[in-house]
Design a protein around this nucleic acid. Structure first.
Lengths: 343, 343
DNA sequence: TTTGGCACTCCAATGTGCAGTGTGCCAACG
DNA sequence: CGTTGGCACACTGCACATTGGAGTGCCAAA
């Protein structure tokens, strides 16, 4: 829905939302009048507020209370009125420090980023790690742990490491293992995880490949290793900080929120939508297709490696979030992460 | 402190605590009288309760309310009066299923165990993984990721796998790497992690070892890999279930609890005490040296491998916990885990 | 179009009364 | 002497009424 608002309506909506974000309480006409630059009387402001209510941008909790923005109103605010605050030097430094990959692989970097997002925003931080379409196969190796045990190790191009124990039905010599690893590496290098899995499927289905018992093993083992890679995982941190937010003070509300977040499947859909867009996106309430979570909002941005979107990061908090603060944080973090990951 | 109670006093304390555990509310004399086998009048029971109050085993929230057990009273109950419930067949099966190592290494098993403990007890489950004195070195390997990058992989005897990326200052050939790995494995096998680290320290300090540049590298690299092993880590699960407990309903209380749990250092001390004892231990309130956590209790038991205690597992919940249920769960789980880990 | 005034609505805080539950003490009982 | 019933008293929790404050909507005047 597109709204055509007069400049006065916009101004008042802006002031009202700003006040609501700070106070979490319904805002009355007098409050607005006090800080209105044009010195309008409360009565005039009431008229405007009444119009905005009719349009569905504001609502009253009860007949004689102040107004609070509806989800629609918040969205209009976020899309049209929001003024970004500049980040301080300190904040930039903190973000850069935490995202700086100290060469310990992408998952460690992303984990630290999640924590940093939570700390800087004071809400919950989240990061969606690259999905199987994005993870690039680099190398697979097999280490003998005993006569009948293997450790399979997968390394992605960004340093994601995954290992899996494999129980053998028959012994394998060192040279056989070497041959297996070589074969896998030769035929899978450069593929995405999805493509690699598919290729393995095909080779296993292909009867002719049966001619070499060893190569067949190679496929079976790498299938096991690759099957375990938790690609597209959703990492959270700082959920506890949401307890400080009045909206989630009550045990039951907080619990429902956390449980909804745990249900990662659905959240992933939202994040997928986010990764198609460019730059920061704001999802508010029902927008996010998270039923019963209309008090919740998410600020997310895709992050890239070498020009391709590979994941999403962001912040989850109350719909009444301090967007002017959070948006630049998320935006900047996504950029920094991208730079850190670029090869 | 040792209390000498008459059998009547014991009986009444038992009934009172049992009722309090079920109701979470102060218990009056009439309530006790109703289910008292010897058919005493409320007045007589009041006398006994008054005595128990003087002894510090019971307390009154206010002058004319029922009694609730003090921490001291709970401890007496746990140590002297507690009758274990037998586990049902179902519960045994569930526990066995979840502890059954499907050969994916000790950390996966312990993680699943934590979750299971939380699910079965309806409180928070916790597991302290083996510390550096307990983890046995089995193998270390180095994989070339590029001309100047290594992946170091450490495998413990129980299948704990740890990997670390290592940035090289100069190239290494495949054979050099092989020599390094062989040297490490030869000199460290069978040691505990602590011993291995110490030995590496010593060799590095020893100037004579300088005669071989390669062997010196071996020590430096393995030091990096072993340094990363998160030994003695504390794993939690099901904290959210504590929100259902009336004691932790309020945001602030719950928050403090979780924060105290996160402060793992102090908790580890308690767990260390637990691992020195044999069988299930119950820590209630200040007992646990966790200030401001007098409403909290922990039921813990050490678990063993091949006869040696290597870690602790247990349940954290309200002091008013259903011990008769939780104690056998923790006890049985520790035994099952021990069996699963025995080689 | 803007403004001040006024009646009206509703919430939140406060006070009051009352029923319920529990204690402590005492005198009586076996 | 331990046990019991009775009684005065204490405190909570709930329902209910009262009040002050904040806010709206509408209207008439500027």
């Amino acid at each position: 829905m597109v709204f055509q608002l007069t400049s006065r309506q916009r101004e008042i909506l802006d002031l009202l939302v700003a006040d609501y974000i700070a106070s979490a309480a319904p805002v009355g006409s007098r409050t607005i009048a006090k800080c209105y630059p044009g010195r309008l009387s409360p009565a005039s402001i009431r008229n405007v507020m009444s119009d905005l209510t009719d349009m569905g941008l504001l609502a009253q909790p009860h007949i004689s209370a102040g107004r609070i923005p509806t989800t629609e109103g918040m969205r209009y605010y976020a899309e049209t009125l929001l003024k970004r605050r500049e980040l301080t030097e300190d904040e930039c430094t903190i973000i850069r420090q935490h995202c700086d990959g100290d060469e310990q692989g992408i998952s460690a970097v992303l984990q630290r980023t999640t924590r940093m997002l939570a700390a800087v925003s004071h809400y919950a931080g989240l990061v969606l790690t690259p999905g199987p379409q994005r993870v690039l196969f680099k190398q697979i190796e097999f280490i003998r742990l005993g006569s009948r045990r293997l450790l399979g190790i997968f390394v992605s191009q960004d340093g994601l490491v995954q290992n899996r124990l494999i129980e053998l039905t028959e012994e394998m010599t060192f040279t056989e293992l070497e041959r297996i690893a070589n074969y896998c590496n030769r035929s899978l290098t450069g593929l995405t995880l999805d493509e690699a899995r598919e290729k393995i499927e095909r080779e296993l289905a292909d009867e002719r490949a049966d001619y070499d018992r060893i190569l067949r093993r190679a496929m079976v083992y790498s299938q096991q290793v690759l099957g375990d890679v938790p690609a597209g995982d959703l990492v959270f941190d700082g959920e506890l900080q949401l307890l400080d937010v009045p909206e989630f003070h009550e045990a039951e509300t907080f619990r429902r929120l956390i449980e909804a977040l745990e249900e990662k499947r659905r959240l992933s859909d939202v994040l997928a939508r986010c990764s198609e867009a460019e730059g920061v996106q704001i999802f508010i309430g029902a927008d996010a297709e998270l039923e019963q979570l209309d008090a919740v909002a998410m600020v997310g941005a895709p992050y890239m490696r070498d020009g391709n979107v590979i994941g999403v990061l962001g912040v989850i908090g109350p719909a009444r979030m301090d967007y002017s603060h959070v948006v630049p944080i998320v935006d900047f973090t996504a950029k920094v992460i991208g730079d850190a990951l670029d090869s």
